[in-house]
Simulated assay, not measured.
Amino acid sequence: MEFDEERVALYETILDELSPPDGEAVSSAHFEKELELENAYQAIEDLIRLGELEIVNTNCGHVRVRLQKPVPSSTPSTRLEDFSENTVWLAYIVSGSSPRQRRAQRLFQNFEVGEEHLANISHTDSLAQVPGLEDVWCEEVKGLSTEYAILRKEYVFEQADDPWP
Rank of each mutant, 00 (worst) to 15 (best):
A25E: 03
V26W: 01
V26C: 00
S28W: 02
H30A: 07
H30N: 04
E36Y: 05
L37D: 07
E38A: 03
N39D: 14
A40H: 05
Q42A: 12
E45P: 05
I48H: 07
R49T: 11
R49I: 11
L50F: 12
G51E: 09
E52I: 06
L53Y: 13
E54K: 15
I55F: 06
N57I: 09
N59S: 13
C60W: 13
C60S: 15
G61S: 10
V63L: 13
L67Y: 04
Q68I: 07
Q68A: 15
K69M: 13
P70H: 07
P70W: 11
V71N: 10
P72Q: 14
P72L: 08
T75G: 09
T75Y: 11
R79A: 09
L80N: 00
F83P: 03
N86V: 04
T87E: 05
V88K: 00
W89K: 00
W89N: 00
L90M: 02
A91W: 00
Y92H: 09
Y92C: 04
V94P: 06
V94R: 05
S95G: 07
G96V: 08
S97P: 06
S98H: 05
S98K: 12
R100D: 12
R102N: 14
R103G: 01
A104W: 02
A104S: 15
A104V: 05
Q105Y: 02
R106K: 15
F108S: 02
Q109K: 14
F111M: 08
F111P: 04
F111W: 06
E112V: 14
G114A: 08
E116H: 12
A119R: 15
A119V: 08
S122R: 01
S122K: 01
H123G: 12
S126P: 03
A128H: 10
Q129K: 15
G132C: 00
G132N: 01
L133V: 01
L133G: 10
E134T: 07
